[in-house]
């Protein structure tokens, strides 16, 4: 052992000590990743519960996108030029579409109109042709045209080929109406058709006169129809007091008709005429205002004939007695024979 010791000492003296060896690295356990807590954090838990609340769900799902869209649109539109660009672009687009060839109206065709009405109609068109059919509001145009007195009905259509066609039904003048402001043509319903300057323009039409006669045109026409036998003598109808008719014949004769039911009264008068030749005699007024009690006003000749037969002095046109000797008028004595019932 001692030899060995010696040897060891000699060995240690002669050679440097062996370097310290690294211990063989044992496989170290791989660092395990810190395990995540499985449960949700309090914030996550609360948010999750909030999200499960129906109100919030709806708010986020519907309200928020709406708000976002509104906000973006509002921001974008807040600039003046962008707004102008947008409206200009839209207007241009609309104009572009509206002025396409398919929508253009080039001519206007009018059927059933007299030349004057035709001219007026063409003048009433709000646009100058050719124009887009979007610019012609047919309903408004129709209403404006039908406001014309001469036109009873009009139908507008835009036909293929760019034709604006108007079918016009004009009012037919049926009667002349003389009133304080002049002379009008009326149709059968009493609607004004046109004004005329004189009776001679339309001699073929009957005449009515008086304030408030126009609304009763139909009645007047019926009366005129009924006055068949005396039609050649008829000068016209006069509306009296805006309530009743007077039939005016030539020779200053007048048939006063009642307010109610004038037609039977007229027939009654015609029947009297047919039986007795009433209107051929010297009768100035046949008063039928009370149909149950017709009143006649006799003419001057007839009165004087009666007076002569009775041996009374005759009267002149003013109703003064005529002295047979003098043959002149005596203004002091008057007679109201004209007022007496016959």
């Amino acid at each position: 052992m001692s030899g060995l010791k010696h040897l060891t000492a000699a060995f240690s003296a002669s050679a440097p000590p062996a370097p310290a060896r690294r211990v063989g690295a044992r496989p170290q356990p791989a660092a395990r990743a810190a395990r995540r807590e499985p449960g949700p954090s309090r914030l996550a838990y609360r948010l999750n519960r909030l999200w499960l609340t129906p109100l919030y769900r709806r708010l986020v799902g519907v309200g928020l996108p709406l708000l976002l869209v509104a906000a973006i649109a509002g921001l974008w539109l807040s600039d003046e030029t962008r707004r102008a660009n947008l409206t200009g672009g839209v207007a241009a687009l609309v104009d572009n579409i509206q002025s396409r060839e398919a929508f253009m109206v080039r001519t206007m065709e009018i059927e059933g109109a007299s030349p004057a009405v035709d001219k007026a109609l063409r003048a009433m068109l709000p646009v100058t042709l050719p124009a887009s059919s979007f610019d012609i509001e047919l309903r408004d145009l129709r209403e404006a045209v039908e406001r014309l007195d001469a036109i009873e009905k009009v139908e507008f259509r835009i036909r293929p080929g760019g034709i604006l066609s108007a079918v016009v039904v004009e009012r037919k003048p049926a009667i002349l109406w003389r009133h304080a402001r002049g002379l009008d043509l009326l149709d059968a319903q009493g609607h004004r058709v046109a004004s005329v300057t004189s009776r001679d323009v339309r001699r073929d039409l009957p005449l009515i006169a008086g304030e408030g006669a126009a609304p009763h045109t139909a009645e007047a026409l019926a009366l005129i129809d009924a006055a068949g036998p005396i039609l050649p003598r008829l000068r016209g109808l006069v509306r009296v007091g805006e309530r009743r008719w007077d039939l005016v014949l030539d020779r200053g004769q007048r048939i006063m008709l009642p307010t109610e039911r004038p037609l039977p009264a007229l027939r009654q008068a015609l029947a009297m005429d047919a039986r007795d030749g009433l209107l051929a005699r010297d009768v100035t007024v046949v008063d039928l205002r009370d149909p149950s009690r017709p009143v006649l006003r006799m003419g001057l000749t007839a009165q004087n004939t009666l007076r002569r037969a009775a041996g009374l002095p005759e009267i002149d046109a003013e109703g003064n007695l005529i002295d047979p000797e003098e043959g002149g008028a005596k203004p002091a004595v008057t007679a109201s024979a004209g007022r007496r019932d016959g």
Binding site: P38, N48, R49
Partner: peptide, 18 residues
């Protein structure tokens, strides 16, 4: 508390209601 939150949240998720 965390375990309870986990369980409640899981059940809520399956149920779809709060």
């Amino acid at each position: 508390e965390r375990c309870v939150r986990h369980a409640v949240q899981g059940a809520q998720k399956q149920a779809g209601v709060r």
